[in-house]
């Protein structure tokens, strides 16, 4: 008896939630504007934050659709993305743009959404090709930059500066993150082609303080290093501080990735050789535009590459 009572008590708030959810979606239906669900990565990361702001700005200017962005709590919070996808499916939105936190994990909900008749466009990080093929979604549209290409451009710039035989570190992002893997691969490709010698490749989990500690310690064991490739600018900031402390600032060349505002002064000062701009603010907007083109009947498939640009001191003058 006691248990029954408890069970029904627990059910109440759930029912209430359902009621609210239902009300929300019907209210939206009345507006008759198409609804776009935007599944973002962590908005704590300023790259994605600026991307989300770009999408909002686009939605406000365009005015023909309603944008519902959903962010995550952290870089690895896949559950939030999956739940967001499921909610969008339940609400029968018109278009879902998804930047997956996990390139395999998000394939199943994407398939479910497409089955439910929703147009889905993948952006920023490409969903895993094998998993897509298995799910019968080989041709899913992907709007995004080539992380490998970007890293290659940065690495190339470093190789040109150092010349053959230059000794470098690679500071990786989160092991397991797809863009981290791609960037590492791009750096490695550039190193190989440019004849650079990679002394060590270690992760600093995208974090400034960790990159600082890591590079400080690596400088002890490898004082002969000449260049450092950091997989994002937050880590590059920590790298530059480590070089400052070791008195090697400007002597050891650094490249980063993302072109965040904080890095730009360092590029101008010559403390950072180059970084990569992926034009984040435009990326989500591009994805939404692509989705509407598809809804109008345009037949698109595969990877629609967005630009990546090498940024050096000359670009910031």
């Amino acid at each position: 008896m006691n248990t029954k009572c408890r069970a029904s008590c627990a059910a109440l708030p759930i029912l209430a939630l359902l009621a609210v959810g239902g009300g929300g979606s019907s209210a939206r239906a009345e507006e008759k504007k198409p609804v776009v669900g935007l599944v973002m990565k962590s908005l704590a990361n300023e790259f994605f934050k600026s991307m989300e702001e770009g999408a909002r700005k686009f939605a406000a200017e365009d005015g023909t659709f309603t944008l519902v962005p959903v962010g995550m709590n952290s870089e690895t919070d896949i559950d939030t993305q999956i739940s967001a996808m499921e909610n969008f499916i339940t609400q029968k939105v018109d278009l879902i743009c998804v930047a997956p936190a996990d390139s395999v994990g998000l394939v199943a909900p994407v398939k479910k959404a497409i089955k439910a008749g929703i147009t889905v466009v993948n952006f920023d990080v490409k969903l895993d090709d094998k998993a897509l093929a298995k799910a019968g979604l080989k041709d899913l549209v992907f709007v995004g930059p080539d992380n490998r290409e970007g890293a290659y451009l940065a690495g190339n710039e470093l190789a040109k500066k150092l010349g053959k035989g230059g000794k470098v570190f690679i500071i990786e992002g989160n092991p397991g993150a797809d863009n981290a893997k791609m960037r590492k691969a791009g750096f490695e490709k550039a190193a190989k082609e440019g004849g650079l010698k990679v002394l060590v490749s270690r992760t600093a989990h995208w974090e400034t303080e960790e990159a600082n500690t890591l590079v400080t310690n690596l400088l002890t064991s490898h004082p002969d290093v000449q260049g450092i490739m950091a997989a994002n600018d937050s880590m590059a900031l920590g790298v530059v501080k480590a070089l400052d402390a070791a008195g090697k600032s400007g002597k050891v060349q650094v490249v980063g990735f993302d072109n965040i505002p904080a890095i730009q002064k360092l590029v101008k000062d010559g403390k950072v050789l180059a970084t990569i701009d992926q034009f984040g603010p435009e990326m989500a907007a591009n994805c939404i535009k692509t989705g509407f083109r598809m809804k109008k009947g345009e037949h698109l498939k595969g990877w629609l590459k967005t630009p990546v640009k090498l940024i050096t001191a000359t670009d910031l003058m």
């Binding site: 952290s74 400034t208 303080e209 937050s234 900031l237």
Partner: peptide, 15 residues
């Protein structure tokens, strides 16, 4: 101390 050492302030540090 963090700011002195790394010359940045960030909302995502310290995780």
């Amino acid at each position: 101390i963090y700011m002195m050492r790394l010359n940045i302030a960030s909302p995502i540090l310290g995780v």
